[in-house]
Design a protein around this nucleic acid. Structure first.
Length: 216
DNA sequence: CAAATGATTCGCT
DNA sequence: GCGAATCATTTGG
C-alpha cells in the first residue's frame, strides 16, 4: 500500500504528507501510527505545528464512549460517517474545541482524537493564540501547557469548527511523517468518559512514553 | 503537589 | 433543561 501521496522539501528536511489511504486502516492501528507524526496548520501562510504525542481511538458504533455509538448520527457528528482523512472538530464544555481525524471506510464512523502535541514550528504564533504574549515572555509553566491537552492544542494551532470537514491531505491542515520513530508507546484508559459504561475501561489511549507534553 | 470549583455555549432530549 | 472526548484558577498541605 502506498500511504504517501507527496514528497515535499521544506527547510532542507524531507517531509512526507500522509494521504487519505493512511487513515483508511483500522482505527486503533492508525491511532498508534499517528504518534510521532507532525500535525501542521498553515496560519497566515506560516507553518504552525507540533509532534503528536498522545491520541485516543474512538471505535464508533460499538463504542459507548464514541459520539457515533449505536449509530447515532446528527448534524454535529456526521463527518464521522464520511470519507476517512477528514477533520472532525467539535465544540465542548462551552469553550474548547477538540480535533479528530476520521478513519476507516465511509459509513464506519470512527476516528482518532488528537490529545497532545510537542510544539515544533510557529512557537510565536502558538504563544499568541494561547496566552496573547511573546514566546519569550511565557513562564515555564505556560510553555509546558502550550499544547499538552486536546483543547489547548486546538487553541495553540488556531483549530476550530471552521476546519470541521477539512481534507487532512489538503494544503491548509495535514499530518506529516518526518521519520521520528525513536520512542516507546504506552497505553491507558481514555480520559473523561465516565459515562461510557464498560467502554470507559478500554485501553484506547496511546502516548509516547516519557514525553513531557503528554496531558496530565 | 492534589483536589475542588467555576467558566460558558452548543446540541440534543 | 442538561451534560459534555476541557481547562484555569484557587485552595490547602
Amino acid at each position: 500500500m502506498n500511504v504517501y501521496s507527496k514528497l515535499e522539501k521544506i527547510k532542507g528536511d524531507f517531509m512526507i504528507k500522509l494521504s487519505k489511504d493512511f487513515y483508511a486502516d483500522e482505527t486503533t492501528k492508525v491511532a498508534k501510527l499517528l504518534l510521532g507524526k507532525k500535525l501542521v496548520h498553515i496560519c497566515s501562510g506560516e507553518r504552525v505545528s507540533g509532534r503528536i504525542v498522545e491520541v485516543e481511538a474512538y471505535k464508533g458504533i460499538s463504542d459507548k464512549a464514541a459520539h457515533a455509538y449505536n449509530g447515532r448520527k446528527t448534524k454535529r457528528n456526521e463527518m464521522l460517517y464520511g470519507e476517512c482523512g477528514i477533520a472532525y472538530v467539535f465544540f465542548i464544555y462551552g469553550m474548547y474545541n477538540c480535533m479528530n481525524v476520521v478513519t476507516q471506510k465511509k459509513g464506519e464512523p470512527e476516528g482518532v482524537l488528537i490529545r497532545a502535541l510537542e510544539p515544533c514550528e510557529g512557537n510565536e504564533k502558538m504563544a499568541e493564540f494561547r496566552f496573547k504574549k511573546r514566546y519569550e515572555e511565557l513562564s515555564k509553566r505556560e510553555v509546558r501547557n502550550l499544547t499538552n491537552g486536546p483543547g489547548k492544542l486546538c487553541t495553540a494551532l488556531d483549530i476550530d469548527r471552521k476546519l470541521n470537514g477539512a481534507d487532512m491531505s489538503g494544503s491548509e491542515i495535514f499530518i506529516e511523517d518526518d521519520d521520528f520513530n525513536s520512542f516507546k508507546i504506552e497505553s491507558s484508559k481514555r480520559i473523561n468518559i465516565d459515562y461510557a459504561g464498560e467502554a470507559k475501561d478500554y485501553l484506547l489511549r496511546f502516548y509516547i512514553k516519557g514525553n513531557p507534553y503528554v496531558s496530565k
